[in-house]
Structure formats: structure tokens, C-alpha cells
Nucleic acid binder design. Structure first.
Lengths: 145, 145
DNA sequence: CATAATTTGGATGTCAAGGTCCAAATATCC
DNA sequence: GGATATTTGGACCTTGACATCCAAATTATG
């Protein structure tokens, strides 16, 4: 459905959104999200280059969200690390239909569109406040008392 | 969105559906679908094991659809070679919410559900008869005259 | 300025998907 | 039964995604 890397990116973003008051350091994000530390560092770099997180080196540094959680959609995060590929032209390379897709690829692209739309409709803030569910990332704090 | 292999499988199925009157030989399917010959052979084997195509060896042999095009959905073809993975339990391995997914994974699984549903709604026959579009696989016969 | 805490970037390793190749098994035709 | 047409199965190669590791660059603190 989405790549492992996109999963990791989303978890990291959610972790940062849950911790808005101070920069969060890579090992802490890794711990919270259960993402391999070394690889997470790479993913965070990409998110940084795409303007989704801000990084700060040195003592007291770490990562913070670059924008408000209500202003970041799932789609943006996914696109940053692993773009949803829409089908724009016939993958067979034949152009016998003047730019229109054949029925098969029209259907496949339609499905991709559904996903894209679904992702675009949800912001990170929506994930934090969803009623009737436990906290994002299933973190252990959620089930005490 | 879907794997390359699933793409190939769908093309092959459509090609067979377009050629219902006689077995179709692997090189011919490869030609029609632009799928690498050797690899296509593997994909067809898998489709055979899953009961979607029937194979016949020897002179006059080849592959045929095992069922009516109206009876085969896109979903079945995709599942045969590359199952859509629904998210059933928290990928972080934490079970602090008693089987319910956290908001993030609930959304991701919902998107997977949309795709699954979309694929389940379309049969191979639908692809052949779709009005207002050129023939499936964008084959060259469609633009003559 | 020295030290410690961080991210950054590059080199490298691992593994499964995608792809190639060929001998063996099976079926038809003469 | 021999020749020919086909699928089948196994061995192998290639490539990109995922992952690890470490030295270098950057920044705050005393």
C-alpha cells in the first residue's frame, strides 16, 4: 500500500506532533516510533528537505514540526518520501488513444486517486484528536488507569 | 500502488480475455502486453496455480482464461500475485488498545480498504466493454480506419 | 576555547522483487 | 515413434528499497 519508508515518516511526524513543546532528538523519536535509529535519521533528513520538519544541531537540538499539525496532511508526508504515482499515460508505451487511458489503467489510476484523496483529507491534527480511539502510535501511556 | 508483477498479471488476463476462442501462447501474450517474455512465464504459472488461467502444453497449446471474464475481478488477479495487505494489528507491536488500530493506522487501512473495494467492483468483462474508451491494452487495432 | 550533544552525508551491507536463461517434462502431429 | 511445439521448474543475475555504521559538520554550554 505505502512503502515502509512512508510508514516510518508518518510515525515520526505523529511523534513530533505529540511533543510540540521542545525539539525531539532522533533516538527518542526512534524509541517512540520503533523505527530503526540509523534509518530514521535518513527519513528525517528527507522530511527536512521537504519542509515538513525543522532540524537543529547541537546541544538542546533535535527535530520539530515545521508547520502546525492541522496544516500537514498525510498526503504531504507520503509524497515527501515516496510519491504516489498516478498513471498519466499508457504504460505500454502505445499512444493509440490520444492521451486517454485504456479501461484497465483508467481503473487502476482511479484507485490511486481514491488513495490520494483519502490521504489529502486527513491532517496530522486529525490523528491526534480522533475521538473514540487510543492515542496515535499506540503508545503505552494510553492504557494506564 | 500495485506491484509491477500485478500490472503484468492484469495485462495478461486482459489479453487472454480479448482472445477467447483459442489458447494463446506465451510469446504472443508477451507481445500484446509488452511484458518481458521470461518473466511473464512465471506470472502465468502463478495465475495458473491460483485457478485464474488454464494451461495446455504442446502443439496448439497455450493459456486460456479458466473462468468467464465477467466472473473474474481485478481484485482476484491482484491478490493472486501480490496480495493487498490490510493492516490488522498495530505495526508497532504494542497492544495497548485491545485490537483497535490507532488513528494513523486506521486511516491507512481505510485507504487500503478503498482500493480493495474498488478492485472488487470491477470484473475483467467490465474492462472489455467499457464505453467511450479505446480497447484495453491500448492495442494498435483500435485506431485504424 | 574546549567539550559534549546533535544532525549530516557518504560508504557499505542485506534482501526481496524483478528479470533472464536453459534443460526437462508434456502434448500434438506426421 | 520421432519431430516439433509448448509449459514447467530451477539456477542464476540485477536492481532498488531498506538498513547499518562512522567520520565530519554544527551548535550550545561552561
Amino acid at each position: 500500500m505505502i512503502s515502509q519508508t512512508a510508514e516510518y515518516a508518518l510515525r515520526a511526524i505523529v511523534a513530533l506532533a505529540q511533543n510540540p513543546d521542545a525539539p525531539m532528538v532522533t533516538p527518542d523519536i526512534a524509541e517512540t516510533t520503533k523505527v530503526p535509529l540509523g534509518y530514521l535519521a535518513k527519513v528525517l533528513q528527507v522530511l527536512g528537505r521537504n519542509g515538513l520538519v525543522r532540524s537543529q544541531r547541537g546541544l538542546g537540538g533535535g527535530f520539530t514540526l515545521a508547520r502546525e499539525p492541522g496544516d500537514i496532511t498525510i498526503l504531504e508526508v507520503v509524497q515527501a518520501v515516496d510519491p504516489v504515482k498516478r498513471i498519466e499515460k499508457c504504460p505500454l508505451g502505445l499512444s493509440s488513444h490520444g492521451g486517454r487511458l485504456c479501461p484497465l489503467h483508467a481503473r487502476l489510476d482511479h484507485a490511486a486517486g481514491l488513495v490520494e484523496q483519502s490521504f489529502a483529507e486527513t491532517t496530522v491534527a486529525d490523528l491526534l484528536h480522533e475521538p473514540g480511539r487510543s492515542a496515535p502510535l499506540c503508545n503505552a501511556e494510553a492504557n494506564s488507569t
